[in-house]
Simulated assay, not measured.
Amino acid sequence: MATLVLVRHGRTTANATGVLAGRTPGVELDETGTQQAGAAGRRLAGLALAEIVSSPLERCRQSATALLAQQPSAGAQRVLVEDDLSECDYGEWQGRALSELAQEPLWATVQTQPTAAVFPGGESMPAMQARGVAAVRRHDARITQASGPHAVWAAVSHGDVIKAILADALGMHLDSFQRLDVHPASISIVHYGGPRPAVLGVNTLEGELGWLGRTPGETVGGGAGAAR
């Protein structure tokens, strides 16, 4: 199977001011976020990404465009928008200050038992995970068939969505997914295939990625790592 690079969008004005943006239209990268997305693009510039797939929200499409701008001529030629990679539908929580939301009874549920969390007027966290995982697996199978098992592709999405996808790949219960950190413009890496997914990186912010695309082997005792 191909290798999936999960990229969170860069910082936004909402992130910087402590507001839960959700699906609010018009939330864009701030100056720091633009720089962060450019840095993520430079990390991936040595790879010819087979495709770049993005959440439809502006901040992700801006980040995906920054990745595309630094691709070699043999790399992805456009950004494909995927609705199922969109931010969690936080419903009535959308647009409110995080400091205010922390006083809500549901906040503790979101932090400690997200499988029981349903946002008022929005979606549940298990529903968010289900659509996100289904989307990346669907695109991964399609890209593998089209471009081969050594293909590398990128999905640009949101913090909670990426954490939920990583939790599934790690065999981690969704109720534990808040233990994961996914920073703005961070890169996490998943390889589907074999008896189980292989998680090759979580929340990475630095380092060259030219070694991607080499299928992980099944090993006992840790293995020797990818050839450099």
Rank of each mutant, 00 (worst) to 15 (best):
Q36E: 14
G38E: 06
G38V: 01
A39P: 03
A39W: 03
A40P: 09
R42K: 07
R43K: 07
G46W: 08
A48S: 15
A48R: 12
A48H: 09
L49I: 05
A50L: 04
I52M: 05
I52A: 07
V53N: 13
V53L: 15
S54D: 04
S54T: 10
P56E: 02
L57N: 10
L57V: 07
L57W: 09
L57R: 06
R59Y: 09
S63W: 04
L67D: 13
L68Y: 09
A69W: 00
Q70T: 03
P72H: 03
P72N: 04
S73P: 06
A74T: 15
A76H: 01
V79C: 12
L80F: 02
L80Q: 09
V81W: 02
D83H: 11
D83R: 13
D83F: 00
L85I: 14
L85T: 14
S86D: 15
E87N: 12
C88I: 15
D89K: 14
E92Y: 00
W93F: 10
G95W: 10
G95E: 13
R96K: 13
L98F: 13
S99G: 15
E100R: 05
L101W: 14
L101E: 14
E104V: 01
E104R: 10
P105E: 05
P105D: 04
L106M: 12
L106P: 07
W107M: 05
A108Q: 15
T109M: 07
T109C: 08
Q111E: 08
Q111S: 03
T112I: 03
T112P: 01
P114L: 08
P114Q: 07
A116L: 14
A116Y: 10
A116N: 12
A117L: 02
A117F: 09
F119R: 05
F119N: 11
P120I: 13
G122D: 02
M125L: 15
M125I: 15
P126Q: 12
A127Y: 00
A127P: 02
A127W: 00
A127F: 00
M128K: 05
M128C: 14
R131V: 00
R131I: 00
G132S: 12
G132C: 08
G132R: 01
A134Y: 01
A134P: 01
V136L: 13
R137S: 12
R137Y: 08
R138E: 12
H139C: 00
H139D: 00
R142S: 15
R142V: 12
Q145P: 00
A146Q: 11
S147P: 04
G148D: 11
G148Y: 03
G148L: 04
P149L: 00
H150T: 15
A151P: 09
W153G: 09
A154L: 03
V156K: 08
V156L: 11
S157G: 03
S157N: 03
H158Y: 06
G159C: 10
G159V: 07
G159K: 09
G159F: 05
D160W: 03
D160A: 12
V161S: 06
V161I: 11
